[in-house]
Design a protein around this nucleic acid. Structure first.
Lengths: 165, 165
DNA sequence: CTTGGAAAGTCAACAAGGCTGACATAAAAT
DNA sequence: ATTTTATGTCAGCCTTGTTGACTTTCCAAG
């Protein structure tokens, strides 16, 4: 390792103390980040798992079950339980694939889109306030660090959705 | 609302699209952020709840159960279950308070400190790599946004621990 | 000294949402 | 014709959160 005043100064942000602060900031921020949608979901009898399914179906309408599975990183049994209740309640529609009839393509119904909007409005409101408070440069840094924190292999799910859709 | 080229350009980071990217970045990054300790915990028969207890007892040795409760934001029944197994396994020591004998002061044993180090080494390694990749300015922005995202009321738990000790 | 209330622990019951394993069905691919 | 893939489903288990009820310990105010 190189040392001297210059490098030891520029690497101050890599001390264990700095890293610990980052770790705790992640814990507390994520807790509050999920709190607003959680409150809404509770009143509807849903949980965070339903929110995630709704979010990504909204983002990629017509996505298959398998695709959703690999984005969420859970088992099909886990996802199926959530998906079944959303379909029964008329928030999600499952259409048999035209080309490949084994596949089910997932869409939000009107009611599903309404709930999605309610949930994401709440989450965006918090994010917007934080972004406005922090400023554009901080936001760039925020995103940069989060992306660097992702597993390189799993990052593709994020990158695939990053450019919009 | 003010408009014109200047303000619409400087507020680009507040569009719904930008906010959505931030929301998804939080989801994916947090998932991977917790993955390393989760793997270690699995081999020891513990879960994320045990990690959180261990982390904050390490940070504030001698903390009371009530204090830990308010930091973690769970019920005493939930925490008690976790704490009991850690005490039984000899990772945590619970000492009756000297002044107030109702209070229990919590400490990590040698074995507890060893596991703590193993867990935090893994988590710091990922954080360190991300920080190094992103650079000091990005790290500042990262922390600024996370802090702005916390509930003002609950932020005190983070702030209290922020300065170390 | 008695009593009220705070701190802590415990028991029971429940729910969400992960997991594994086993099995069924339909359709595509070989 | 057989194998593989995509999906769904049943049963059961675990962790970790919840509420409610109850007890013990002990400080502090009356």
């Amino acid at each position: 390792m190189a040392d001297g005043p210059q490098s030891s100064e520029s690497l101050l942000f890599l001390t264990d103390e700095q890293l610990r602060k980052g770790i705790e900031a992640m814990f507390f921020a994520y807790r509050d980040f999920t709190a607003d949608p959680d409150r809404i979901l509770l009143t509807k009898g849903y949980g965070r798992a339903h929110h995630r399914a709704i979010h990504f179906i909204h983002r990629a309408p017509g996505t298959t079950v398998n695709n959703l599975l690999s984005i969420l990183g859970v088992t099909k049994q886990s996802l199926n339980r959530v998906l079944r209740s959303l379909i029964e309640d008329g928030l999600v529609e499952s259409r048999v694939g035209r080309r490949d009839k084994r596949e089910r393509h997932l869409f939000l119904t009107e009611a599903g889109e309404t709930l999605e909007r309610e949930l994401s409005d709440a989450q965006r409101a918090r994010m917007r306030t934080a972004y406005r408070e922090a400023g554009p440069e901080a936001v760039t840094g925020f995103r940069t660090v989060l992306e660097a924190m992702m597993d390189p292999e799993l990052r593709r799910h994020y990158m695939a959705m990053k450019e919009g859709g």
